[in-house]
Each structure stands twice: as structure tokens, then as C-alpha cells.
Nucleic acid binder design. Structure first.
Lengths: 195, 195, 195, 195
DNA sequence: AATGAATGAGTCTTCATTCAT
DNA sequence: TATGAATGAAGACTCATTCAT
């Protein structure tokens, strides 16, 4: 094995910490746990990150940005509203829900580092635009104001993330597929659209 | 003959801890914070609770039981399904959503002490029964299987709790009223029922 | 069951504490362990004993006095030196060695409460007198001065107690009978006396 | 590159703790006593030892090993049995008995950390071999079986340690020299050997 | 006299971060 | 730059004893 490149050390720290924060929780993971997991010296951790806090912040920030940027671009590059919805529902959402470690961290303790409200606002905006481009009338018919829709989107988004977390973390009898399936049906029914 | 255990001291500890856990988080609240807040000596904390863990467990357990028992009784004693739904939506849910400290703790770090999946299962069951008693047909017509409904109820319940938390805790532009209003509209639309 | 007489409460405390101190050690036994074991309230412990220290002191003091007084009387009342030696070796020593809890406490941590040097001096004196009454010549012949004999008696006495403790407490391959048997042979050889 | 673990700090901790454990007892010595005695910060104690327990274990282990290894080697390298006995009695035993702190710890509370039965077994074996190489016949003549001799050696070894401890720790009228002198005479008499 | 809640100094240990090497 | 020993405030919890009832 050749000497690791620096960027790869940073990635190692991020990856090991993500796993540890997800499994043990942020406060129950010590910097020395990260040291053990990565095999790197403590000092090295601190040449890449200013603090333990910064590690979780960067995990969330980079994980989210990577996801969000791709999502935004894909939507921008897809002209058909129906196709955009399909992309969101069949590709991006399942991908997000597949990364349980990321969800765990996003919803974890240390929410102050996680800034989940920003993510919700962004996703909510984005989906709101998608919906209005898709089916302005049926939404109006349902008697839902913009505020209502935004609230519902927020509830849905964070509800889905939490439900997936619980489905896979607790003994509750529910799978990610159940969740995704139910959501799809609701969307189809609400929008009278075949997915 | 000796001093009797003082229920009011126990309540003080529970109440102060609830506030602290909610505001600062469980792991960022030290037993000595509780000591300062209550004005009681450390030893006294430990004559009423075996550990810091037990405090959060009891906050959740007692808060939930008190709520759930009343809810169950009220539903049992209310013959009309429509009235039962009204009770749930106009009385119990707003009451639960009004106790932000309790929500914060329920959703907090230390989920292992919180056992939120149990609460979700119970509420989900209860609401599922209520829905089927209310509008078996329209639910069937919507093409939703039992599994779907259960998943959606879970998403809704935990989504609402989280949304309220975010609405009041973060800078997001959304109020508890927005959330409750939107939820009511969805229910009305879904069930074709006036609330 | 009738109400316990007071003296019997004191005895209960002494007996439970003896067992606990022996099994768990003095410093690893808390007053609350004694409370649990006896079933008596803490306050009661402190109406019979001024402190935890006093409990171990009284266990040792009373256990020793009871033993020593009987031993002294028996020796006083037995005219024949040979018979006195037999009494010591066949009755009193085995009895003492049979009470492992007492030995454990006598040799325990908290030696300052135990005052074992007093016991050694007393036993040493007593046995020294017995020996000189028995076989003044052979002892002289062995070239042992009084100081030597006293030292040897001390070594023997405390060595035997410790050996028995280890024999029964550790995995060492040695029994109380081995110890007693060996000691008897030494005495017989040294004094040229049949036992 | 970074500071290297400082063997002298470790030695300081061991030495100060040995003194403290010997004088005040293991359970009556707090880690903060060690901090005061060494002048080192608490954290540093824990970079050299995992726990307070480990400190006493290492004191005993290293003290014993150092002694036992030298003893074994010296005996191995000494061809004459008489000279081996002299070495043991005139050099090693006095040396061991001279380290009162070590004896105190070896016999202390916390016997579980001390594992004195192992030491007794080893010393007993070693001396047993020495004795049989020295005077197989006279031992046989004395009518002592192997089991007897082993028991006596154990009694003697631990008896001597305890006697020395008491001689120097309590007000008892006995000195280390008395003890050693008496033991020598017994050996000389038993084995009919001039020392 | 009997009781057991109250007390708070003290226990051992951890841990994020720094900084000498 | 890389390293990992050093640091000490802070952590949760204990416990012998007291004293209000």
C-alpha cells in the first residue's frame, strides 16, 4: 500500500466518524473512538478538523450538498414535470433513504450542528415548485393554501426520514419499502397521476 | 417516624430536568445543572432517582402515560366516531403539541430511553381503529392497504411532532397552527368529513 | 414471630456484618449493605453502634474475648500440661480455624480496628507458658532463647491463620486438615511428645 | 515526534502509590492523594495506568517479578545446596523483609489484586526443591510427608511476612532481627546444618 | 426510641483539545 | 507537518452519618 494521500485521510475520518456517530450517537462517540476506528493519530484528526463538532457538521454539509446539488441539476435538466416527479420519487428519495447512517446523523442529537431546518426548507421549496408545475389545479381543488402545502411537505419529509430510521433501528414492524410504497400511493391519489 | 419521601421534591426534579433536557439536550445537561436548577443537594436527586437515565425515562413514561390513559378513556367513552375524531384532533393533539418540552425530549438524543417506537405503535393502532370505524369505505377506495395506512400514520405522527419542534425551535417560517391546520384539511379531504 | 428483643437486634447486626465483611471486605461493604442484609432501618444500626468502625471492632473484640476467655479457663482448670496441650491443639485451635469469617475479618484490611497484635501477644504468652511447663529441657536443648520462641509462636500463629484463609479462599491446593496435621507433627517432633 | 511516554513519571507514580498504599491502605488512598504526592495532574496518572487497581497490581507484579527472577537465577547459578540455602537466608529473605512497604501491600486489603497465593506457591516450590536437594534423609526421618512440608513452608512464608509487618507496624515487642534469627535457628536445628 | 430521607464532600474516571517534540 | 503525551475541569455517582419527624 502506498502512502495515503491527504484528502483520503480526511475522507477516512469523515467515513469512520459517520459510522460511529450513526451507531453510537454523537455524544457517545469520543474522539478517541475515532482514533481507534481510523487508526490515525489524534493529532491528525485535529489537522483536518478544528473540533469534533466540525466533523459532524462536515459530514452533514458535504453529504447533503452532494445529494442536493445532484438533485437540483437533475431536476433542472429534466423538462417534463412528470419525469421530474419520477426522478425524485424513484431515484433520489430511495437513495437518500438508503443511507441510514446519514439519516441517523441528520436526525441525531446535536441537531444544532445538523441544521436540518435548512434542509427541510430547501427540499420543501423544491418539491413545492415541482408540485405546482405538475398539477396546479388539483392542488387548488383540494383547498390547500401554500402554507398548508409547505407544512405538509415538511411533515412528510421529516416524517419519512424518522419513519425509516425507526423502521430499521427499532423493532417496529415496518420496512423502508412499506414507507416508500405508501408515500407513492398518497402522491398518486393526491395528484391523480400514475407513477 | 422519619421524614417521608416528599412527592413535591420528586416533581421538582422531574420538572426542572424536563426543562433542562428540552432546552440543552440530555447529554448537555449535567446532574449538577439539575442541582443548580432545583436548588436541591445532589444526594437528594439520587434519593428520588437511581440515575440520570432514570430521570429522563420517568419524564417520558409519566408524561406519556398520563396523556395516553386520558386519551384512551375519552375515546372509549365517546360513542360517535365523528366526535372521537374531533376529540383527537381538537383536544388531544393540540394539547400534546402544546407541550414543546415533552416533544423535544421524546424526539431527543437518548432515544433508547425514550422508546418512541412504542408510542408510535400505540397511537397508530388507536388512530387506525378510529379511522376504520369512521370511514371504512373511503379508505378502501383510496386503494390503501392496512400496511400503507399504518406507515402513513407513523409518518404523520412523528412528522408532526418533529415539524412542531422545528417550527418553534428553529428559524423556519411555520407555526404550530399552520401544521395543525394543514393536517386537519388533509383529514377532511381524505375522509370527506367536515371537522 | 414475636417482636425481636433488642439484644437480638444487636446480634443480628453483628452476625450479618461479620458475614458481609468476611465475604466482601470491610471497605467494600457499605452500611446500606448491612441494612439490606439485616432488614433493619439505618437508624437502628446507629442506635446500636456509633459507627461502621465500631461494628468491626465489636465483632473482633467479642469474638476474640469469647474464645480467649474459654481457652484461658479451660487451661486453668486442666492440671496436666500434656492434657492442656491436647486441649489447645485438638479443641481450641480447630474451633478457631473453623470460623473462617472470623479469620477473614481478623486478617482483613482495616487491621487498625482489628488489633491483631494484641491477640498474638496474648496467645503467644499463653502458649509460651504452656510450652515451658511442658518441656523446659527439650526447648532449652534446642538452643532457642525466649525471644526466639516468642517470635516463632507469632510466626506460627499468624501463619496458620493466613494459611487457612488462603487454603479456603484461593485456589491453592491445601486444606485446613493439611495445615493442622503438619502443625501437629512439628509440635510432636519438637517436643518429643505424642499427641 | 510527539512527547514520548516518560518512564520516570511512571516510576514516580508507582513509588508514591506504593508508599501511600502501604501507609494508609489501598482503600484509604484516593487517586487525588496520589496526585498530591506525585505533583502530577490527574490526567497523567491515567495516561500511565488504566485505573487505580492497575497501579497496585503493577506495584505487586513488578516488585515480585524483579525479586523472584533474581532469586531464581541466583539459585540456578549456585551449585552447592548449602550455599543456595545461605543465599536464600542471608541475602534474599532479608532483602524481601527489608521492604516493608512491599510487604504491607502484598498482605493488604485488595488481596485479589495481590494474588499472594501465587507467590506462596512459587516460593514454596522453590524452597521445597532446595530442601530436598539439601537433606532428603533428615526430612524423611522427621516423618514429614511432602504435603506437610508444603503446608509448613506456606505457614512459614506468610507467617514471617506478617510477623515482620506487625513487628514494625504495631507496638509489639519484636524486631525483624528477632524473627530472622529465630527462623535461622529453626532451620539449622531441623536440618542439622550450620549456617 | 425509632425511622429513613437528607446531606455534600469525596470517589474514580473521562475527554476534547493543546503543544512540545 | 506529524505525533501522542499532557492536561484539569467536569462527569456521574456514593456513602457514612445526622436529625426532623
Amino acid at each position: 500500500m502506498a502512502r495515503m494521500k491527504d484528502e483520503s485521510k480526511r475522507a477516512t475520518i469523515l467515513q469512520s466518524s459517520k459510522m460511529l456517530f450513526s451507531h453510537k450517537g454523537f455524544y457517545n462517540t469520543s474522539v478517541s473512538d475515532i482514533v481507534k476506528e481510523t487508526g490515525l493519530p489524534v493529532g491528525t484528526i485535529y489537522t483536518y478538523f478544528r473540533s469534533k463538532d466540525e466533523i459532524i457538521q462536515d459530514i452533514v454539509k458535504e453529504g447533503w450538498e452532494e445529494f442536493y446539488v445532484r438533485l437540483e441539476r437533475a431536476l433542472r435538466e429534466t423538462p417534463s414535470p412528470e419525469e421530474r416527479l419520477r426522478l425524485l420519487i424513484d431515484e433520489f428519495i430511495p437513495e437518500l433513504l438508503g443511507d441510514l447512517d446519514f439519516i441517523n446523523i441528520l436526525l441525531s442529537e446535536a441537531l444544532s450542528y445538523t441544521r436540518i431546518e435548512e434542509k427541510i426548507e430547501k427540499i420543501t421549496d423544491l418539491v413545492f415548485k415541482l408540485l405546482t408545475s405538475l398539477a396546479p389545479d388539483s392542488l387548488g381543488l383540494a383547498g390547500l393554501a401554500r402554507r398548508d402545502i409547505e407544512a405538509l411537505l415538511a411533515i412528510f419529509f421529516i416524517g419519512i426520514l424518522n419513519a425509516v430510521k425507526l423502521a430499521r433501528t427499532s423493532s417496529i414492524d415496518m420496512s423502508t419499502e412499506d414507507i416508500l410504497g405508501a408515500v407513492k400511493k398518497v402522491i398518486r391519489n393526491s395528484l391523480r397521476i400514475a407513477l
